[in-house]
Computed example of a mutant assay.
Amino acid sequence: MSSAREEAIRTTSTRDVTDWWSTAVSDIEPGVIRLRGYPVQDLIGTTGFAAMIWLMVRGELPSEAQAALLEKALVAAVDHGPQAPSIAAARMAATCGVGLHGAMSTGVGLLGDVHGGAGQQCMEVLAEIREMSEQDGIESAVTRKLAQFRAQRRHVPGFGHRFHPRDPRRDPLLRAVAEQVTAGTVEGCHLAIAVELERQLAAGRAKPVPMNIDGVTAVVYVELGFSPELGRGLFILSRSVGILAHAWEETMSGRRIKGPIPPPLLPTYVGADERPVRRP
C-alpha cells in the first residue's frame, strides 16, 4: 500500500465515516427510530399515511386540512385499468414468474415523461404562468402561454383525455381545492390559472378540453407547495397501489407468459415479403 494511501486511512476519522450518508430524514440506533425527529411509536396511530408522506419528504407534519387534500389526490390516481401501459406491463411481468417485486418494478419503471409525467409537466406550466401573471395578470399570461404551445404544436399537459369526455376525478378534486382556498389552507392562484387554461382551451371548440387526472392533481400538489419533481414522485406512489393490485390479481390467476394480445392473434406484420438468403 502506498504511503499516501496509508496516510489517508490514518487521518480518516470516525466522523468522516458516519457523515458519509448523513441524513435529516431518519435517526436510527438500537431501540430507537426517529423520523424527522418524531419517535416512530408516537407517529403510529396518530399520523395517517398521507401525512407521513408529507413529513418524510418535507420535514414537518402537515395540518389536518393539508393532509386531507393530499390524500384526496393520492386516492384519485391509484389506477386507470389494464389499458394503462404501467398496469399492463406489471400484469404481463407477473405471468412471467418474476415475483410481485419484479412485476411492480416493471410497472413503475414505465412511469416516465410520456406515461406518468404529465402531472409534473403541468405543475411546471402552472408555475411558469404564475410567474408571468405577476406582470400581466392571469388571463393575459394564460393567453401568452397557450400561444407558445400552439406555435410549437405541443399539447398542454394535464388537459383532455383519450377515454373520458370529462374526467370523473376532475370535479371532486377541484371542489376540494376550492374549499381549502375558502378555508385559507391554500392560496388558490394556481387553481385560478388552471381554470383559465381550461376556459381558453375550450374557446372556439365544439367540445371542451377539461382537466384530466394529471391536471387536477397538479393543481393540488402545486397549491400544497410541492415541487414539480415531487409531484412526479407522488403520482408514482399513488399509481403503485393500482400496480400492486393488478400484479397480485394476475399472479393469483395462475396464467403463464401472457402476451400483449390473446392468441391466436398476432401483431400485424408490415415488413418485407419472404425472400431467399443471398449466399456468397
Rank of each mutant, 00 (worst) to 15 (best):
S2T: 15
S2Y: 10
R5D: 15
E6F: 15
S13E: 12
T14S: 14
V17Q: 01
W20H: 15
D27S: 14
I28P: 01
P30T: 05
V32M: 11
I33M: 04
L35V: 14
Q41V: 10
F49C: 02
E60M: 05
L61V: 11
S63A: 03
L70A: 12
G81D: 06
A90R: 08
R91H: 05
V98H: 03
V98D: 00
G102E: 00
G107I: 07
D113V: 09
V114L: 15
V114G: 08
H115Y: 10
A118F: 02
Q120N: 10
C122M: 13
A127C: 08
A127P: 02
I129S: 09
S140G: 14
S140W: 07
L146S: 04
F149E: 06
Q152I: 02
R153A: 08
V156Y: 05
D171H: 06
A176W: 02
V177L: 00
E179D: 09
E179W: 00
T182D: 12
H190G: 06
A192D: 05
L197N: 03
A203Q: 14
R205G: 01
P210D: 10
P210W: 11
M211Y: 13
I213W: 01
V216M: 09
T217H: 02
G225Y: 04
G233T: 06
G233N: 07
L234W: 01
I236W: 04
L237M: 04
R239Y: 04
L244N: 04
A245W: 08
E250L: 00
R255S: 12
P262T: 10
P264R: 06
A272R: 15
E274T: 07
